[in-house]
């Protein structure tokens, strides 16, 4: 097994992890600040991808599409926060799970009614087509750009939370909800902004990933489940935890699927090793999540307490 192959798979894992981070960051903020389990976060990812594909298809400009996808996801997020989710903050988790499960059904069918049952395909922008020579291997220019993009957003988010007024309010909201109301912060407004921010990040991830894969109804749910794994591993409410969790999940999942079958092939018959290796590799991150929950029930980086 060559160094080039290891490097390429590692890059694949990091790229996957950073896209998961965009999804998880919003999810973890929403839970940290509002205490809401939002299953419909994957639907916002889907909305971002569909709007990006539609606008990019109509205008021929990917960047316009990306902006439209982010804006649409943020708007959709703000809308459902104001009309529906706001009523659920005080409810128990069961009600939150059910209401947001209902939202998945509604949003998925809504998108299917508007865009039809076929997948859409988005072209990557011309300047990011083709591959880059990394010395020991070639790598897709677009995937490399995704890594850069993910890091830039992570830095931006960190600055936002640590250096701005909004960030202070968010952090205050995570540690003590009554206190920030007492400090005169408009809490309803803060909640809507936080939700829209998380939605925008999910929409951005959907649009960016949509350009290399495909844009279809139901694309958000597998990513949603992985994002939950990420925030539970990282510690709910913690952006740092989301980053570490996302990279762990991205790299472990990618490398596991690649290395486990090979590892089993050293002492098993190849075709059998493929099956056993693949079966165990697909369970790996859930085993990791269960282990973290059993050993550190609040995750690796608990946001408070």
């Amino acid at each position: 097994m060559s160094l080039a192959l290891m490097l390429e798979q590692l890059l694949n894992g990091v790229q996957f992890g950073l896209m998961l981070f965009l999804m998880s960051a919003g999810l973890t903020l929403v839970f940290g600040v509002m205490g809401l389990i939002n299953l419909a976060h994957g639907s916002l990812y889907m909305i971002g991808a569909f709007l990006c594909a539609a606008v990019a298809g109509a205008t021929g400009n990917f960047w316009l599409g990306l902006m439209a996808g982010i804006a649409a996801a943020a708007a959709a997020g703000a809308l459902i926060e104001v009309t529906i989710l706001r009523r659920l903050y005080a409810r128990d988790h069961l009600d939150q799970v059910l209401a947001t499960f209902a939202l998945i059904l509604i949003l998925s069918e809504g998108v299917r009614i508007i865009f039809g049952p076929f997948p859409l395909y988005l072209n990557v922008p011309d300047m990011l087509r083709g591959s880059v020579d990394l010395g020991i291997t070639q790598y897709s220019r677009y995937r490399l750009a995704l890594i850069g993009f993910g890091i830039a957003v992570a830095v931006g988010l960190w600055l936002l939370i640590s250096r701005t007024r909004l960030g202070i309010q968010i952090r205050a909201g995570e540690s003590d909800r009554e206190m920030i109301a007492a400090l005169g912060v408009n809490i309803r407004w803060l909640y809507t902004v936080v939700f829209a921010l998380g939605a925008a990040l999910a929409g951005m991830a959907g649009a960016l990933v949509g350009a290399i894969q495909s844009v279809q109804v139901g694309m958000g749910e597998p990513v949603l489940i992985l994002a939950f794994v990420v925030i539970v591993i990282g510690g709910i409410g913690s952006i740092k935890g989301a980053m570490v969790g996302a990279l762990l999940v991205g790299v472990i999942d990618t490398m596991g699927r690649f290395l486990l079958p090979r590892a089993f092939a050293t002492f098993m018959e190849p075709s059998q090793a493929m099956g056993v290796g693949a079966a165990l590799a697909s369970m790996l991150i859930y085993v990791l999540m269960a282990l973290v929950l059993i050993l550190r029930p609040k995750g690796l980086f608990p946001a408070h307490g």
Binding site: M1, S2, A4, L5, E8, Q9, N12, Q15, F16, T137, Q138, S140, R143, I212, Q213, T254, R257, F258
Partner: peptide, 11 residues
């Protein structure tokens, strides 16, 4: 997503 498969074909 076929990134992992493409890497293996390349190698």
């Amino acid at each position: 997503d076929y990134a992992a498969e493409i890497a293996q074909i390349r190698a």
